[in-house]
Amino acid sequence: MGKILNVVERAYQGTLEEQDDQALWLVHTLQKAGGEHAVLLRGPAVSYAVRGQSVGSLEIAGVKAGNPPRLDQDLEKLRAAGVDLYAVREDAAERGISREEAIAGIQWVSRSEVPRLFVEASRVFAW
């Protein structure tokens, strides 16, 4: 039985307010609970793979967000926890993202290879 494939496309909606990505955070907790998960970044979420991104701090009317995420590092932590990381090559290229600027450890797949990942996975969750 393959891993659960979490296809993440919604991006940067929780960065400041939630201080993480809601799907990646949940996958991390599920993996720690004993699950076997993989993450496929598609659409805007391929940008999470860009190395060194940091939103910095956010302060609105004197209220400061204390600990914004480092999404590239969050991905690396997922990988260290045993989560396989994939990203769609064409989705990155369309956005001008090169593999050289991405973190290591991403397995780049073409759009046409995504269905193969669906076949190999035990379940597919679209986030």
């Binding site: 659960i4 909606q13 599920l30 699950g35 969750f125």
Partner: peptide, 22 residues
């Protein structure tokens, strides 16, 4: 509950639909 409940649900369910926000 917590994500641990979700993990347990995943283990015993026929299918899981993640109806995420967009």
């Amino acid at each position: 509950g917590s994500p641990a409940d979700f993990h347990a649900f995943i283990q015993r369910s026929t299918n899981v639909l993640t109806i995420g926000t967009r």
